[in-house]
Nucleic acid binder design. Sequence first.
DNA 1: GCCAACGTTGGC
DNA 2: GCCAACGTTGGC
Length: 135
Amino acid sequence: MNYWILKSEPDVYSYEDLVKQKIGTWDGVRNYTARNNLKKMEVGDLAFFYHSNIGKEIVGVIKIVKEAFQDPSTEDHRWVAIEVSPLEKLKRPVTLRELKENPAMQHLELVKYTRLSVMSIDKTDFDYILKISQA
DNA sequence: GCCAACGTTGGC
DNA sequence: GCCAACGTTGGC
């Protein structure tokens, strides 16, 4: 079982939008590193939903409900999409700022590779962030 | 709105 | 295959 972080601009597609839809298609990824991560996802994996640009914070936990398939938003066979469902909204969003300020979180890809939209996260870090979101 | 980081493209 | 030019993303 693996853990991930999925980024979206909330004015385009927010966690609340996903809650309304119940199942959302995560498509439109056009970056090989991100695409490779999508391909590694398995049904049942968990991910954080991060709001980029507006908020810049992790707002919820979602789960992968369908593994990689041809991205429906393009004919180009290089790109894939997955499907996700909302699991729970964080009691308190965890901001990028506080992660950057936390010495224990400096190795996070979210902190180091700001432009990557689909990335993995260790279970340890996943649990840690969940924990601080409940404080 | 600006800029840094970084991925992609195309000329050689 | 290298590298300059260019485009895109996302934080500030």
